[in-house]
Nucleic acid binder design. Structure first.
Lengths: 344, 344
DNA sequence: ATGAAAGCGCTAACAA
DNA sequence: TTGTTAGCGCTTTCAT
């Protein structure tokens, strides 16, 4: 019922030499004679010897494993990020342990504990919409385990590297884009304000409104709670009730945007003729069938790669204690298949 | 730079008792006096003692970790499966190690090795479109490590449990559905035939064609290679060239179906008036904006849960050596938001 | 160039 | 009820 079970001891016994010699031979230690190395490696090959990484970990205190916690895997953006993480981890010889918090604070705490218990070398985290208490993250730091946040990152108080996109500027660019297309009454479906990304997007939107001196009223910003489909739908219906009905909606996130689309269609209105929709969203294939959809595409793969690279850098920097870095990635505005960078 | 480092030894020394007593006290062993247990637990709590799972694994030869290999994480279906796996694994106290093969045979082999090296207790695998050589799976079995396949499963030769959907019947039902809606010239975008699912779907399609005595010609089955977007597009263009142009397309998989949609639109034809599209696909939000899309929805979450449950069952059955089981899940045909089971 | 011995942190047989 | 000892598989001083 168990593993192949051939150990260094077995090889040693077979060859009539000591385990330590075998160990050294396998690692190509300079002290060992070429002849011995040859013999050891040949036998290892023959008996299909595989080093026991658990035993190695027990000694070295390294598992070559990185832990990842994301809110939800069934989500285009996060699956993209994970993909990037896996790619870099794989190339650098790390394996990925993965948990999803399901946007649940309690689960996130337990996941953190579980990954620490499994002795991951470092952690990559994008925290849940519910998370306002960061004690579990502090615990990680207390243990001196490298931790990098991506997308949903804390502001300052934790001294960690972060990977984000330029939410503020992107939101502003979105308004610019809508204005160019002559939409002058732009509403916003805002996300949960305990997430910095949502705050930034709202701020960028406001900046755009002010810059272009657009019409604005209180009701133009709808707070969609957790930004799910139903909330997007509900909030959009609120927008539709306004006397100065907006002719464009800038959505904080994709699922809310889909809710908005449904509300608009249910009201018998047309997209984008009556109301244009734009937002942080990757419509994936939908843009093929609804070419009027414009999105601010988040570079998920890049974010995953950047996060993994940064974490591994910190892991391998040993005690040099790298100061945290905040890396900001650029988004793209994708219009009807064409791409224009938000970079100014 | 390292973990909290408080060990059983530390606790023992502090309390002036032996490590084994501490170990037993922590595990609530009946032999230990309540008083000792109290003292030990109190100190453990105070010093924030965390058992070292690596050391435990070295002894027990169990890591409480399951390895998962899927072709691609950025894919609605597979992300759904992973989600189900994670859910069950979490509830049963396992952690998930995850790799994606990127539909690359070589990577799959390496991933297998990596997960075995990390001493996962068992493996869940859906193999790549390229995989025709199963030696790496046999290697797993040789080591007596439980292995469960899902969705893309081998036929017989490996003696493993499998979780699949009823591809054959679902495909037949799809044809039934199209016939009811009066589409009598139905073509098929077939998938890679080294995958059993693709074979089954093709067979079910053929069965449907025969049963209803529908018009058929050679060109109605287009083999889309790996079934990517471009292939779906190309193959659909082939269909459009036929003199008896089909008025419905049944697609083996989602991405090919999207390619088909683009080809049809590019040709100035309408969906579904000119050509209806149906297939194994989850259009997610697209069905909101294109309500004419009908899909055979694959129960990904259920598949993930079932696979994880089965694997854990085998893990915990110890040496009882459960005979492999082939579990077949039912799909749903989802039409304009309504759901009809394919179960007959 | 090689071996002996100790120890990573934990547990379990055996002894007391 | 508790302690002693040995060992999981590996590496690494320190000796030879």
């Amino acid at each position: 019922m168990k593993q192949s079970a051939v150990t260094i001891k077995d090889l040693a016994k077979e060859l009539g030499i000591s385990p330590s010699t075998v160990s050294r031979a396998l690692k190509d230690h300079p002290d060992i004679s070429p002849e011995t190395k040859r013999l050891v490696n040949a036998l290892a090959e023959k008996l299909d010897y595989e080093p026991n990484t658990i035993a190695m970990s027990l000694r070295s205190k390294r598992t070559n494993t990185i832990g990842v916690i994301i809110p939800e895997i069934v989500h285009f953006f996060f699956s993209t990020v994970i993909s990037g993480i896996e790619e870099v981890a794989y190339k650098k010889g790390y394996t990925v342990m993965f948990c999803q918090s399901n946007e649940d604070y309690e689960k996130e705490v337990i996941d953190t504990k579980a990954l620490l218990a499994h002795r991951v070398d470092g952690l990559l985290i994008s925290y849940s919409k519910e998370t306002t208490n960061f004690d579990h993250f502090r615990e990680i730091q207390r243990k001196n385990i490298p931790l990098v946040f991506f997308d949903r990152v804390p502001t300052d108080e934790l001294h960690c590297s972060t990977i984000t996109i330029n939410d503020f500027e992107s939101a502003e660019s979105a308004v610019d884009h809508l204005v160019i297309e002559n939409h002058l009454r732009i509403a916003h479906l805002a996300g949960p304000q305990n997430l910095n990304i949502s705050k930034q997007r709202l701020a960028g939107y406001k900046r755009g409104i002010e810059k272009h001196k657009l019409y604005f009223e209180e009701g133009y910003v709808q707070y969609c709670g957790k930004g799910d489909f139903e909330e997007g739908y509900r909030c959009t219906n609120e927008l539709l009730k306004l006397s100065e009905r907006p002719n464009a909606i800038f959505a904080n996130n994709d699922v809310a945007a889909y809710g908005a689309m449904k509300a608009i269609k249910d009201a018998g209105l047309k997209i984008p003729e009556d109301i244009a929709i734009m937002g942080f969203s990757n419509w994936q294939f939908a843009s093929l069938t609804e070419p009027q959809l414009t999105s601010i595409a988040q570079p998920g793969i890049e974010m995953g790669k950047a996060a993994a690279r940064r974490l591994i850098l910190e892991l391998e920097a040993k005690d040099e204690d790298l100061p945290p870095v905040d890396q900001v990635l650029k988004t793209d505005i994708i219009v009807r298949g064409s791409t224009r960078s938000t970079q100014k």
